[in-house]
Amino acid sequence: EINVTSHGEEQAKHWIELAKRMNLDVEVEIHGDKIIITIK
């Protein structure tokens, strides 16, 4: 399980695309200006 804290939408999209390509599950939480991505 990987937790990524992203401070930008572009960076977040990059991680989500990467996870989808690798067929991994992704959870995205938004806390103000921080985007927390959990890849399982």
Rank of each mutant, 00 (worst) to 15 (best):
I16E: 15
D33Q: 05
I37H: 00
T38Q: 03
Q11T: 11
V26E: 00
I16Q: 10
K13F: 12
E29T: 12
Q11I: 14
L18N: 04
H31Q: 08
M22I: 14
R21S: 13
E27H: 12
E1K: 10
R21H: 14
H7Q: 10
M22D: 01
H14V: 08
W15H: 13
L18W: 09
E17K: 05
K34W: 13
K34C: 12
D25G: 04
I36P: 00
V26G: 01
K34Q: 08
N23P: 04
I2A: 07
I30S: 02
R21I: 15
I39N: 01
I30G: 02
K40I: 06
A19K: 02
T5H: 07
R21Y: 13
E17C: 08
H31A: 05
M22H: 03
G8V: 14
A12Q: 04
L18T: 02
V4S: 07
I39G: 00
H14T: 06
D25N: 06
E9I: 14
T38V: 07
I36R: 03
I30C: 15
E1V: 13
I16P: 15
V26F: 13
K34T: 08
L18M: 05
A19T: 08
E10A: 10
E10P: 04
T5Y: 00
L18S: 02
T38N: 04
A12Y: 14
V4I: 09
V4P: 07
V26K: 00
E29W: 05
N23K: 08
N3A: 07
K40N: 04
E27G: 05
A19S: 03
A12H: 10
I16D: 14
V28M: 04
R21K: 10
Q11S: 12
V28F: 06
E10Q: 10
L18Y: 04
N3K: 14
V4T: 06
E17Q: 02
N3Q: 13
E10H: 05
N23W: 15
V28P: 00
D25L: 10
H31V: 11
E9P: 09
T38G: 01
L18G: 03
E9Y: 14
G32R: 07
L18H: 03
D25P: 03
I37P: 00
A12P: 07
V26W: 07
W15P: 14
T38R: 13
G32D: 11
H31D: 05
D25T: 14
K20E: 10
H31W: 13
E29V: 11
N23M: 13
A12T: 12
V26D: 00
I36H: 02
A19P: 11
V4W: 04
W15G: 13
K40P: 01
S6Q: 07
S6C: 15
E10V: 07
D25K: 11
N23Q: 14
G8I: 15
